[in-house]
């Protein structure tokens, strides 16, 4: 008595006509002479999926296969498969949890990593970064305007330790209403932002905000994060054509996380307060941007929830009496900083 089938021994390509004899602890494979070709212990037997017949493998004979016609008493004799009913639910819940964990953890982790990078390394890397942005950029160089900007920066920077101060603050002749901090501590303010500002306190507020980004090394953290997200996205989707990485990197490039933004806001208020400048200027500026609404896609997209940020600043106690960030003459000079023929960013 036995189950007829085919046996391949993994040594040659031939099929051997055999019968299988089922025992309690395993099975014997017997050829037509009644000789036992192999004994397979039950615990080592597994199914090979994907074929119409029943194919069995034995872990102690890696390439040997047993082929039995279906339906077969052997499949009842084998341990039955467990069903994977909870799999989908668990998987969807698990991946949602992981995405949430990453969204929460990556901004924090990237800050920690950014602080582990030596400042010298960041500055020399930042130099190559600035060099890439150059060529088409022109820096406004009106002497009295540059003096005013320098004075404002010094006033704001007094409370900061030397290594947290920006390496350079420049205005670029460009209608964008924006300011950016680059890795390595360069802050670029766009002319459009100066045009929009109605008081020196507003400019001081934005500058303090960018200086806070530099002090907390957010630009480097943002770069690290976008690289991290890009490589994770690439590996998760298995898309090595870098499509996902490019999309993810583009969505994140130069964008600070909300955590970074609120940290920079509250530090900006401290910087302003230490310099005896009213933080309400920053709040007013947020308000103005908010009212202009759709006008400002660039600034809005990287700085969401302007209204709530404004309210947080307004809600803070004012503290010591304040004086204007710049006097009227300096403010006008700063607004006119682009009057002088501009020079290239790279010349310095």
């Amino acid at each position: 008595m036995g189950v007829p089938g085919l046996y391949r021994d993994g040594k040659n390509a031939r099929d051997h006509q055999i019968v299988v004899r089922l025992l309690g602890h395993g099975l014997d494979i017997i050829d037509h002479d009644g000789q036992v070709l192999a004994h397979w212990p039950k615990a080592q037997i597994s199914r090979v999926d994907g074929t119409d017949d029943l194919r069995l493998a034995c872990s102690s004979h890696p390439l040997a296969r047993l082929l039995l016609p279906q339906p077969s008493p052997v499949s009842l004799w084998l341990p039955q498969r467990r069903s994977a009913r909870g799999l989908w639910l668990g998987l969807v819940a698990g991946s949602a949890a992981m995405v949430a964990l990453l969204a929460w953890g990556l901004p924090r982790l990237s800050i920690v990593v950014a602080h582990m990078v030596p400042l010298e390394t960041e500055r020399s890397w930042g130099q190559t970064f600035v060099a890439q942005m150059e060529d088409r950029k022109v820096v406004c160089a009106d002497a009295s305007g540059a003096d005013a900007l320098d004075r404002l920066e010094k006033r704001l920077a007094t409370a900061l330790p030397a290594e947290q101060r920006p390496t350079r603050v420049v205005v670029v002749n460009d209608p964008l209403v924006n300011a950016i901090a680059l890795p390595g501590g360069t802050i670029i303010m766009f002319k459009g932002l100066l045009d929009q500002a109605e008081s020196a306190d507003e400019i001081a507020g934005v500058l303090a905000h960018e200086m806070a980004h530099v002090a907390q090394r957010h630009p480097l953290a943002a770069a690290i994060r976008s690289i991290g997200v890009a490589s994770l996205a690439t590996m998760m989707t298995g898309d090595f054509s870098a499509l996902v990485a490019t999309l993810g990197g583009m969505a994140l490039s130069g964008h600070y996380s909300r955590t970074d933004e609120s940290a920079a806001d509250s530090m900006a208020v401290d910087i302003l307060r230490d310099a005896d400048i009213s933080p309400l200027g920053l709040a007013t500026f947020f308000d103005r941007l908010n009212q202009q609404g759709g006008e400002l896609p660039e600034f809005l997209s990287s700085h969401p929830e302007l209204e709530s940020r404004r309210q947080r600043i307004v809600g803070l106690p004012l503290g010591a009496p304040t004086s204007s960030a710049l006097d009227k003459v300096d403010f006008q000079n700063l607004k006119n900083i682009c009057a002088q023929p501009a020079r290239k960013l790279s010349t310095r």
Partner: peptide
């Protein structure tokens, strides 16, 4: 399923998925 497992395992599953 492989994609979801890649997310859960921070992409380490990909060798087994492949």
């Amino acid at each position: 399923v492989n994609f979801l497992l890649n997310i859960v395992t921070l992409s380490l599953w990909r060798f087994w998925g492949k």
